[in-house]
Design a protein around this nucleic acid. Structure first.
Lengths: 269, 269
DNA sequence: CGTTCCATTGATCAACGTCAAGCAGTGTGG
DNA sequence: CCACACTGCTTGACGTTGATCAATGGAACG
């Protein structure tokens, strides 16, 4: 069980690793360090190299000039963040911890030599970028939906990803993913996040425990959010609850407890 | 001047190509074909391989079950779309043409052998994915801003990218990027898009010609939108108008023609 | 000369933000 | 043990943004 176990498991799932490459990755013993909550993972690090989240939750943030913070991506244990490949890192923003994190730093040189000796690893890392791109596109889709569904979908994603990392949703919400974080991801006000969470609880889709969400049964929430975990490309053993695909496309929203929510399932073409 | 000229120019900009790799790419003579507007680029193609936009504008779309369409990415001449690397393509959705397009198909095998003979090309293609990820994150940032700024920023992006492809903004809006497309990108109703465009015109930030936007002078629009073209990673010769960075962070919006718009510039950390 | 596709305009309403106050945990120092 | 501040959540009142519905108009095209 090295820090890279979860990462290798995900790459295995995609059938991207040969035996030699798997062993080369697992043989890595990167330097680990503890980063307190709300700190920049890259602070004080020399530029370049990747950072593997070993424990905790981190995110990529952009600070707007009016003081609002937007969260552009989440990173769970097993996720690699930052891809400073030489001078060409095209991504802006800081990598901030949401909860206290254990981070493993993989220097640029290590990656380079790894890729040189095992070219398949480059494709595997590239594939990770593609998965991150796909998650971002799902977030873009969510951005156009109502707040209830947006937050419900986010909770599903956090649930699936924390499960896949061997962690627990409530733990995740309790340590770091506060309501303000949900607000910065969903581009909503904290006030509205609070209201929506209570609406979801009233609909028996989630339960709240001092602000932290838990999922009593996954199925209704998944159906309501239209969550299909395929885009996360998590390993098989992880949560893989499939939403029931409705036979046809449902165009008429089903009235639901006096609000605009309905249980119509959205699928992507 | 091969179909890959624009692509190679962008990769050159990022100093990602050696001379041999540049020549290998330019030597490609992929099959080109004409795709009518509003068609799926991948229809009738065998799976795998990449598609290079040679002419026209395309996009990645997701169809939601309630019938709404969301546009998740735009592709201009010189952009590669779809990354079916074996069985592991993690991106959903269709690639649709917005205007009639000339598309060059690069088969999977060609890419494989290219990468095998010139390993640097894999890093270059990976970098393209990172740029696409960065653009998506900028769209996520935009999704949290008001409609005026969101659309203004989108116009700036389309302007910069069409210029970089040797094309022209008005031509781009006239042929394909109708208001309904803006609506599907910005997650707004077409009605509101129309209103916002007129508001921008009233503010002398754009001009409208039968629904198509043009930019009288770039500077005010760029400042209003908070557009910094760095995230597009376009070649040097392209539009590179830099917004005036205000000395400090401006927190007080400047009142502006009776609406909530202001010229405060947003920068990313 | 209809038809079709877009863009436009007005009226109405729901969703969500903002402001402001209050409240429950959780430390921290006296 | 009790103030005290502090952080995060909750609640209400109110205003704004943007969606929706419906009708109109203009250009392109057969």
């Amino acid at each position: 069980m090295t820090p890279l176990t979860w990462l290798v498991r995900r790459l295995d799932e995609a059938a991207l690793l040969g035996e030699a490459e798997r062993r080369a990755l697992l043989a890595l013993a990167p330097q680990e360090r503890l980063v307190p909550a709300r700190a920049d993972i890259r602070d004080g690090q020399k530029a370049g190299g990747a950072h593997l989240i070993v424990h905790g939750v981190a995110c990529r943030t952009a600070m707007l000039s009016d003081g609002t913070r937007r969260i552009l991506a989440l990173y769970f244990p097993g996720d690699l963040c930052t891809w400073d490949r030489g001078a060409a890192d095209p991504l802006p923003g800081a990598i901030e911890t949401l909860s206290p994190c254990i981070v493993a730093d993989i220097p640029s040189g290590t990656i380079d030599s790894l890729i040189r000796s095992h070219p398949g690893i480059e494709r595997a890392l590239w594939w990770l970028t593609l998965v991150e791109l796909g998650i971002g596109q799902q977030w873009l889709i969510n951005a156009g939906r109502e707040a209830e569904r947006r937050i419900a979908h986010l909770i599903c994603e956090v649930w699936a990803r924390s499960q896949a990392a061997g962690r627990d949703l409530e733990e995740c919400f309790a340590s770091g993913v506060r309501q303000a974080v949900i607000a910065d991801i969903a581009a909503l006000s904290t006030v509205h996040v609070s209201r929506v969470l209570h609406a979801l609880q009233a609909a028996r889709l989630i339960t709240l425990n001092r602000g932290a969400a838990a999922i009593p049964q996954p199925a209704p929430l998944i159906a309501f959010a239209g969550f299909d975990p395929g885009y996360l490309h998590l390993p098989d053993h992880a949560a893989r609850a499939k939403p029931e695909h409705s036979a046809g496309i449902r165009r008429d929203p089903v009235p639901w407890t006096g609000s605009s929510m309905d249980f119509g399932h959205e699928s992507r073409t």
